[in-house]
């Protein structure tokens, strides 16, 4: 495995504008505070993994990034601008971010190829022929060219998730948000999805990945953010987080997972 050559630490990015910035983000569901002042930056080309116990706010932060959830305090910035809450304005932001969900959420009434082309044709007004060509190329990229005409119900979980990744990529996003992309998968299909994600990272895609796959985070992430109770308790390169965690909370969490470095 080759070492990552990308400059990653925020300090090395001085003066550069982060692609995504969280500035004291607060999110409440009723009386429950899910995010309690989260601040972080994600730079172009970075792969940032969000880890931590269930209910610690990782997925909620991801949803606040593209406006699927509104924030109750603080700001989320994308490309220097505050992510708007206006439904029309937020669409422009969403079109520049791809999102992949735990349960795939492929559209069941469309073939794999149509799932991929519906965004570009409906939202961007791309011509059907050109969208189809790009869609087939994307299916190729995730190794599912031969499944172009298959409906989601005929695909395995791993195949569905790879189509879902292709669907998100079809919008030519600048950032990809992954919300526990392998948590609903059978163990034997997790690898095929992680491989696709790894290749995407190698191509320089900016990625935020909520995951419980510590091996993936260790190998692919440039930085890891450790969440607990709606806060980031530790942030750093994977070497630090997994081999030399500075915080008791991080050690506890990794210990519970049986992680031993």
């Amino acid at each position: 495995m080759s070492a990552s050559l990308k400059p990653t630490a925020p300090a090395e990015r001085a003066g550069q504008q982060p692609t995504i910035a969280y500035d004291g983000v607060v999110k409440r569901f009723g009386s429950l505070t899910v995010l309690n002042g989260v601040s972080a930056e994600v730079y172009k080309g970075e792969v940032v993994c969000l880890i931590g116990p269930s209910g610690s706010g990782k997925s909620t932060l991801l949803r606040c990034t593209n406006g699927l959830e509104t924030v109750d305090g603080g700001r989320v910035l994308f490309d220097g601008g505050v992510v708007p809450s206006d439904q029309e304005l937020i669409r422009r932001v969403r079109q520049r971010m791809g999102m992949v969900f735990q349960n795939f959420e492929l559209f069941p009434h469309m073939t794999a190829l149509d799932n991929i082309t519906v965004g570009p044709t409906t939202i961007l007004g791309e011509k059907a022929a050109s969208a189809r060509e790009r869609g087939l190329a994307l299916l190729d990229k995730v190794g599912l060219r031969q499944k172009a005409d298959a409906f989601p119900s005929a695909l395995s979980g791993g195949q569905q998730q790879r189509v879902a990744i292709a669907r998100a990529l079809a919008m030519n996003p600048e950032v990809m948000l992954f919300d526990e992309p392998t948590s609903a998968l059978d163990p034997e299909t997790i690898g095929e999805v992680l491989n696709v994600m790894k290749r995407l990272a190698d191509e320089g895609m900016t990625m935020l990945v909520v995951t419980h796959e510590m091996t993936f985070a260790r190998r692919v992430a440039d930085r890891v953010l450790v969440f607990d109770h709606g806060r980031i308790v530790e942030a750093g390169p994977p070497e630090q987080i997994f081999e030399n965690p500075q915080q008791e909370r991080t050690r506890d969490f990794l210990g519970h997972l049986g992680w031993n470095g």
Partner: peptide, 25 residues
């Protein structure tokens, strides 16, 4: 609800969501 989230995350409008994703299902 996940279907709605997926369509909105792509950047669809409310009308596109209903017409293309929700109603056919």
């Amino acid at each position: 609800p996940g279907q709605t989230r997926a369509a909105l995350a792509l950047g669809m409008s409310g009308a596109q969501l209903v017409r293309k994703i929700i109603l056919p299902q």
